[in-house]
Write a protein that binds this DNA or RNA. Sequence first.
DNA 1: CACTTGACCTGTCCGC
DNA 2: TGCGGACAGGTCAAGT
Length: 317
Amino acid sequence: MPELPEVETIRRGLENKIIGLTISDIQILNPKSFHGDSKSLIGAKVEKVFRRAKMLGIVLDSLSLVNSLKKQNPNKKRDSKKTILFHLKMSGQIILALESGRQKADSENKFVGGHPTKDMLGELPNRSTRIIFTLKESDESKVFKLYFNDQRKFGWVKVIQNSELRIQKEKLFEKLGPEPLEEEFTWQVLKDQLQKRKNTPIKVALLDQQVVSGVGNIYASEACFIAKIDPQRRVGTLSDPDIKKLHQAIIQTLSDGIKYGGSTRTHFVNESGKKGLFLDYAYVYSRENSACKNCQTILLKIKLGGRGTVYCPKCQI
DNA sequence: CACTTGACCTGTCCGC
DNA sequence: TGCGGACAGGTCAAGT
């Protein structure tokens, strides 16, 4: 999936465009992709868009919904504020398209008020579209469709109560390791987190979301290269200086990933349907049999923890 | 417990 | 051109 930089890219793009919009309809094309009561979201307004690990959350302020419920049942006391949580897994996409609006499209680039129009985005919906949300401006001046596409159907969308987020009871969050781009993520924290994976190859340990959250196969491979550490090395053999280098490398590669709008191997696109450019700058991922950018040695591909892993046998020791 | 493997799905690419 | 197998950004459950 989309790893941390890809999900963060979508989050940043979406929040500018959907905060304040109201959900007016949800179409579920593949029931297995959606968990929860979709009808309970109709009428709710988007308040915030956040990311935790590789998950994206759309927080709803259900004021209008609460009011309509009160009319029906004034004594019913409940927290009806909800969040729509997304996990894109391997092939998920979240694409926002302007359906209709009063403004005319700019003939040059076909954007309307910064939004790509439908014809820029290829066929939508397409055969991998699983869920379609309809979102409207409060004055109904614009109508958007938010498409959740997912070719491989591993991804999901689920409805949770905001209270579950606050008290960290949501089991999807409670076991996650630290956010690597937050200040709390120091090299000592990384060292502590690695304690329970002493006998695991370091690259496999970096993929464990309980160790660090948000790192996936691309950025784990890149971080090992930047730190000049062989991805096969057992965690227990790493020195403190090794862990310090790895800590810096994780932060660097994830930050670069965000800077270049994420990585596109096949599926990833941002909320406007654009591909990420990070792989043009990657040192090792998907570069097997090519020359190392540092020493020209031919990069090797092996399998670690069942995942393809590319590294430089000379630079990474 | 720590660690590995297979399963979940659809699609593409490569070798025969 | 067809067919089988391996592989693809992730994460579980079940195995050793």
